[in-house]
Simulated assay, not measured.
Amino acid sequence: MSKKQTAPKKPKLVSSTPRPAREEAEAAIRTLLAWVGENPEREGLRDTPRRVIKAFDEYCAGYNMNAGDILAKTFSETGGYDGAVLVKHIEFESRCEHHLAPFLGKAHISYIPSGKIVGLSKIARLVDIYARRLQTQERLTSEITNALQKHLKPKGIAVMLEAEHFCMKVRGVHKDHAVTVTTRFTGEYQKDDDLREEFFAQVRG
C-alpha cells in the first residue's frame, strides 16, 4: 500500500494584512497614472494597470515559493568529497523595497558539506526565491545564508552579492556605475581567514 503524499506547506505570509483583490491592485495603478498627470483611459494606458499587476506577479513570485521545498532533496553519496562547493555568477533580479526600483546583480555562494549535498540548480533557485520579493541587498544576503544553514547544516557558508541599484542610477544621486557588495560567512568560513581568501580568489578567478 503506497504512502499517502502530503501537499507541500504553503509559505507563510510576510504580513497578516488581508491581500487585496486583483481589481483593487489594478485600480491603484490607475490612480497612480492619474496622479502623475496622465489620462488612464487613453488608448496607450487603458490596459497598463492589468499589465503592471501581471508583471508584479513575476517580480514578486518568491512570496509563493518555499526554500524548504527547494532544498528538501539532498544526496549523501559524495565519494568522500569534503571540499567546498562554489556556484558563482548566479544572476538575479530584485526590487528595492524603498522605491520599488530594480536592482540587478550576481550571487556567489559556497558551502562546505557536512555529509550531504544539494543539486546545483537548487542553489540558483534559492537565490530566486528571495530575490523575487521586495528586498534590501543586506537582507537578501542573510536570507540565502540562513536557508542554507537551516536545511543543509553545512560546516561553513560563504555568500557574496554584487548588484547595481536603479534607485541610485535613475533617481537621487544618479550614480551609473556604483556597485554594492555584501557578504556573509558562517562556520569554518567565519573562523578561517585563509578559507575566506580562497573564496574571494575563486570568485574573482
Rank of each mutant, 00 (worst) to 15 (best):
15 S>W: 04
16 S>A: 09
18 P>L: 12
19 R>M: 07
19 R>N: 11
22 R>S: 15
23 E>N: 11
26 E>Y: 03
27 A>S: 08
29 I>D: 04
30 R>I: 11
31 T>N: 09
34 A>T: 09
36 V>Y: 12
40 P>I: 04
42 R>K: 12
44 G>W: 02
45 L>E: 08
48 T>Q: 14
48 T>K: 14
50 R>H: 13
50 R>T: 14
53 I>L: 12
53 I>K: 09
55 A>K: 09
57 D>V: 07
57 D>S: 15
57 D>N: 15
58 E>Y: 03
59 Y>A: 08
62 G>S: 03
65 M>E: 14
65 M>Q: 15
68 G>L: 01
70 I>H: 00
72 A>C: 05
73 K>Y: 07
75 F>K: 04
76 S>Y: 08
79 G>K: 12
79 G>T: 11
81 Y>P: 08
82 D>R: 12
85 V>T: 06
86 L>P: 11
88 K>G: 04
89 H>N: 14
91 E>D: 15
93 E>T: 07
93 E>S: 10
94 S>N: 07
96 C>V: 11
97 E>A: 00
97 E>H: 02
98 H>E: 05
99 H>F: 10
109 I>E: 08
109 I>M: 11
111 Y>Q: 09
112 I>F: 02
114 S>E: 14
114 S>F: 06
115 G>I: 03
116 K>V: 08
117 I>Q: 06
117 I>R: 05
119 G>F: 01
120 L>Q: 11
120 L>Y: 12
123 I>D: 06
125 R>F: 00
127 V>G: 02
127 V>P: 01
127 V>K: 00
